[in-house]
Amino acid sequence: MFTGSIVALITPMDIKGNLCKESLQRLIKYHINSGTKAIVIMGTTGEAATLTYNEHIDVIMYALDFSEKKIPIIAGTGFNSTSKSIKMISILENSGIIGCLNITPYYNRPTQEGLYQHFKEIANNTKLPQILYNVPSRTGCDLLPKTIYKLSKISNIVGIKEATGDLSRVNKIKNLIKNNFFLISGDDKTAFEFMLLGGDGIISVTANIVASKMSKFCNYIKEKKINKAKKINKELIILHNQLFLESNPIPIKWAVKRLGLIKNDKMRLPMTPLTEYNQKIIENTLKKLKLI
């Protein structure tokens, strides 16, 4: 369930900053038709931090409805409050999601013991599969391999989205954990090397606009067609980098709009639109890749 190309989906909004259900439905159909293995809804790329608690749940429920069980939905349910995560997951327990993606608590800067207790408490309050999410550049704390190993012993903690960009983490985690534990890249630009080292897939930002290519890329690695995967990676590497010229999801949301998949690139403050300077840079790359 947690392998291959999984998209970290944007949340389309109307001009007033409310969810655009029509665009969300269009995006989900796009990923169903493009071979994307699963959708992460309400993650970092989905602007979960600027939506209200009720909106967060609504977006997940709409995604489940629009998916029509044709593509698995993974819900972002991570907060810097353990109790908030538990409350949200309890609401989603029988909703139809296949699992939860829980980010390390941001701003609090918990110790490794605090991180262990946080994820353990969440897992103990649900039967849903739990995926850990480690992205120190955004949270201010780093979930270390030894703590991941301890957490992997909890039966419904099934994997980790590792977004440090540190490729040495793959072997460190694999050497500690011998059971079935999914290692998922959270960094497009190092995903090729990550998967060659034994990673199972990627939760991808870039897949928002090149879903079919990212799906083929992951399938080629699984099929040991490394040269074909390498060719796609070489083609997309400039895009992987440019989509982080400004804080995610600012560039990707503009690019999705530029491809005509959503009506506008409206974001909520404190997130602001992509600058005209960077629009031109990404526009040129989209043209070179024949995406527009």
Rank of each mutant, 00 (worst) to 15 (best):
F2A: 05
T3Y: 14
L9K: 03
P12A: 00
P12C: 00
M13I: 04
D14M: 03
D14E: 10
G17K: 15
S23N: 15
L24K: 00
R26N: 14
I28H: 01
Y30P: 05
H31Q: 08
H31K: 08
N33R: 14
T36L: 02
T36D: 07
A38V: 04
V40T: 04
V40E: 04
G43F: 03
T44A: 09
G46H: 01
A49T: 11
T50V: 14
Y53E: 08
N54M: 09
H56P: 11
L64G: 00
S67A: 14
E68H: 12
I71C: 03
I74N: 05
T77W: 01
F79E: 00
T82L: 09
T82H: 08
S83W: 13
S85N: 06
N94S: 13
S95F: 08
I97P: 01
I97R: 02
I97H: 04
I98M: 02
G99F: 02
N102R: 03
T104S: 12
Y107W: 12
E113D: 12
G114C: 07
L115Q: 06
K120R: 14
A123N: 04
A123C: 09
N125Y: 11
L128V: 06
Q130C: 14
V135Q: 02
S137G: 15
R138N: 14
G140D: 10
L143F: 10
K146L: 07
K146D: 14
T147K: 01
Y149I: 00
K150M: 12
K153Q: 13
I154L: 10
I154S: 15
I154V: 14
S155P: 00
N156W: 05
N156Q: 03
V158S: 05
V158K: 12
E162G: 06
G165N: 09
G165F: 11
R169D: 12
V170T: 05
K174V: 09
I177C: 04
I177H: 11
N180V: 07
L183V: 03
G186S: 13
F192D: 03
L197H: 10
L197V: 11
G199W: 07
D200R: 02
I203E: 02
I203M: 07
V205I: 14
N208M: 08
I209Q: 01
S212H: 13
S212R: 12
K213E: 15
K213M: 08
C218A: 11
N219R: 01
E223H: 12
A229D: 06
A229H: 06
K230R: 11
I232A: 06
K234W: 05
K234M: 09
L236Y: 06
I237R: 09
L239K: 10
L239M: 12
N241K: 15
L245S: 05
E246G: 07
N248K: 08
I250K: 06
P251V: 04
A255F: 06
K257P: 00
L259Y: 03
G260A: 07
G260K: 10
K263T: 14
N264Y: 11
K266S: 08
L269W: 08
T272W: 07
L274K: 02
Y277A: 10
I281P: 00
I281F: 07
I282N: 03
